[in-house]
């Protein structure tokens, strides 16, 4: 028996919106640690890792480890039927091939349940080694989304370069070129507006903007985004999920041939 209950159901809706365009089908792993997922996009260029810790749920019961294969577009369709203020419960009984999503309105006057078929998904689970990153940027997530959106009107790739001066996002295309430099700015009224750059070594990497833009679908989840970079390693773009976990996107760099 697996059951989780999340009073702030909108979080789960936002989580699904953040991954459904990147990944078609994925295995959700349910364990005593929490509700997690690791999946690559169909081109095997990006990887998303989600963790929602069991302590973050109002109720969490997992009698034995369970893997639930779901089509994320279908799951998102079902979660779209939950109101933003609804409490969401996810239930799966042992030995069944369905999962039930239950939505309760805050005043308890409307209760819906949606049953979805599970799938057998043959997915590869990758071991992600702990790494010391040469540069870590923390910045407002909305600002990062704006930069990715603006640069994708200029080119297909972004060069992210961290130096003592700050972090530079550059794109180049048929119509011209663009450079956006963000400097460290810790002296702001609100901590969520800060840009903090921790640099051990200068680092410059090139990435496909299509994926970066897809990652920014997670912007409604967190005021800040953390971008961790090292030479010739995938970048990690991390959004925290309201004290209960994270969504981390890993993106392999483009390299000069």
């Amino acid at each position: 028996m697996f059951e989780l209950r999340l009073v702030q159901g909108s979080l789960l809706k936002k989580v699904l919106e953040s991954i459904k365009d990147l990944v078609n089908d994925a295995n959700f792993d349910c364990s005593s640690t929490g509700f997690s997922l690791q999946a690559m996009d169909s081109s095997h260029v990006a990887l998303v890792a989600l963790l929602l810790r069991s302590e973050g749920f109002e109720h969490y019961r997992c009698d034995r480890n369970l893997t639930m294969g779901m089509n994320l577009a279908n799951m998102a369709k079902m979660l779209k039927c939950a109101g933003n203020d609804d409490i969401i419960t996810i239930k799966a009984d042992d030995g069944t091939d369905t999962v039930t999503f239950m939505f309760e309105s805050p005043s308890q006057d409307k209760i819906s349940d949606f049953e979805m078929k599970l799938m057998d998904i043959d997915s590869e689970h990758l071991g992600i080694p702990e790494a010391e990153y040469e540069a870590i940027i923390r910045m407002p997530s909305a600002e990062f989304a704006r930069i990715c959106r603006d640069l994708s009107s200029i080119g297909d790739t972004v060069v992210i370069s961290v130096t003592k001066e700050g972090v530079r996002f550059s794109a180049r295309g048929d119509i011209g070129a663009a450079n956006i430099v963000c400097r460290q700015n810790a002296t702001v009224d609100k901590p969520e507006d800060a840009t903090i750059i921790e640099m051990q070594e200068p680092v410059t990497l090139t990435f496909a903007l299509r994926y970066m833009n897809s990652f920014t679908k997670a912007t409604p989840l967190a005021e800040q985004v953390t971008i961790s970079m090292s030479s010739d390693l995938p970048v990690v773009v991390e959004y925290k999920v309201a004290g209960m976990g994270y969504i981390r996107y890993y993106l392999a760099p483009k390299i000069e041939e």
Binding site: G127, P129, A252
Partner: peptide, 14 residues
């Protein structure tokens, strides 16, 4: 021209 690397070139299969 740039070559797009794959994610599994960096992370080992479990």
């Amino acid at each position: 021209p740039c070559l797009q690397r794959k994610i599994f070139e960096y992370f080992n299969s479990n």
